[in-house]
Structure formats: C-alpha cells, structure tokens
Computed example of a mutant assay.
Amino acid sequence: MLKVDALHAGYGATEVLHGISLEVPRGKVVSLIGSNGAGKTTTMKAISGMIRPRAGAILLDGQNVTGLASHRITRLGLAHSPEGRRVFPTLSVRDNLLLGAFPRLIGSRPKGDVATDLDRAMDLFPRLKERRNQLAGTLSGGEQQMLAMARAIMLRPSVILLDEPSMGLAPLLVEEVFRFIGRLRSERVTMLLVEQFAAAALDVSDYAYVLENGRVSIEGPAERLKGDDAVRAAYLGGGH
C-alpha cells in the first residue's frame, strides 16, 4: 500500500533522514515513534510531498510518487492530517470537511456518495455535528484536531497519515482521538501514525518503527515492541 525505500530528506543544507525504509500494508496501522527531532514529521512531509526527498523512493499502491507535488499525491489517494491541525479558520466545519473531498468533487478521484461520507465523518465526532455551521477558527484546539482527522477521511484515501493527533489535547480528548483511530483500525483503514504518546500509539498499531537521528533503529510488531526493554526505557516511561 505505502512503501518508503532508502529515503533521504531534510531542509536546506541539513539532512534529517538518512536512508529510512518502511512499509504500511493495506488495512494495517503502523506507528513511527521516537524522540523530538528524530525525523518523524520530516518523514510525513516527505511522503505527502510537502518537502522534496533528496534520494530514495516512495511508492503508493505500487506507483512511484517520489517528488510529486502534494496535490497530485492527494489525488492518488494519500490524505495527510498534519501536525498543528491547519484547518481553514474562516470556513465552516461542514465546508472544511467538504474540502477534504475536493478531489472527488472535481473528478480526480472516484466521487462516491459524498453526502453520506459527510454524515459519517460527523457521526464519528458528534461535537463536529453539533458545530457543523460554526467557523472552524472558533473551535477549541481539540475540536480542530477532530476536524483535521475527519477531513482526512473525506478523501476516501488509500492511506492516511496522522501526525501527532493528540498534541496539546486534554487527557479526555486524547482518549477520544484514540477511540477514533481504533474505530478506523477496526474498519481496516490503512494508517501511518506519528504520536508523542508511544504506549497509546502501540496499543492501536499492528507494527511500529523507532526513529533515532533520522534512522530506523528498531522495528517489529507493535505488541513485541511494547515488551522490548530498550523501547520501554526510552519511550514508554515517564507518561509515555
């Protein structure tokens, strides 16, 4: 479904990723965990076309998308819910969700039943349904995160990238976000997840990669990594 092979990427003269490789099989949830600065968000940006890789390959459904512009990768079926939410603040909740389906509405992806999908997205997050006509910029931080995630599923994507979905949220909202991820997993939605709460990420994942200084240091089934002494010591203690 999604394959990253020997990926190098960075910013200006600084290389952040030094040849990482990973796979996200169809219908699985894969987590990318690591400390701040390890290269997790850079990986997501390179996959979705927000930055151009320096070397390596990115395959989506077998198609090479390396270096393509973000809008072209989106039309091929990759949805990115980025770190920091990035909703459209002057548009309503409903219109933000419809923008997630924009490639379907212009015919660059199969249209399907957009109205039904809109209702489903809001049913997943009842708070959004209550605020469907409210401007996105007036929502709380937690509600904006819900909106960003719900907008991603409106694409009917092959793969969803979720970058730090719980960042800055109160504990009760974090639980709600992970319930949403768990529900999508039960529906076999393919996801690559970057998350600060490593234990929670591993609980909803099938497989995981640990990034250290732009390289994959450990990988394996999520259940095994939860019991790995090195992973536990580095990422699963002190509130993680």
Rank of each mutant, 00 (worst) to 15 (best):
R232Y: 02
D119Q: 15
R188G: 00
I51P: 04
P103S: 08
E164M: 15
A198R: 05
D123I: 12
M149F: 15
G137P: 06
M146C: 14
L225T: 07
I153R: 14
I20Q: 12
Y11D: 03
A38T: 04
L128S: 00
L22W: 10
F88A: 13
L68W: 04
M146L: 13
N64W: 06
I218N: 06
A233E: 00
L99G: 03
A150L: 15
G239L: 05
L147H: 15
E164A: 15
V216N: 04
F180C: 07
E223H: 02
P157V: 13
R86I: 12
F197M: 09
L173C: 10
R224F: 06
A148M: 11
E223V: 12
A46I: 01
M191C: 06
V194T: 08
G214V: 07
I58V: 12
F197R: 01
G62Q: 10
P53T: 08
L162C: 14
R52C: 07
A121S: 06
A38E: 02
T41V: 05
F178E: 08
R75C: 13
R131S: 09
L236S: 01
N213M: 08
P103M: 05
G238T: 08
G84Q: 07
L32E: 07
E143I: 11
E130N: 09
A148T: 10
T42P: 07
G39E: 03
L173Y: 11
T43F: 08
E175M: 12
E212T: 07
N64G: 03
I47D: 04
R183Q: 15
D117M: 04
L135C: 06
F178V: 05
L17A: 06
R215D: 01
Y235Q: 05
A148G: 13
L91V: 03
P165R: 13
V189W: 09
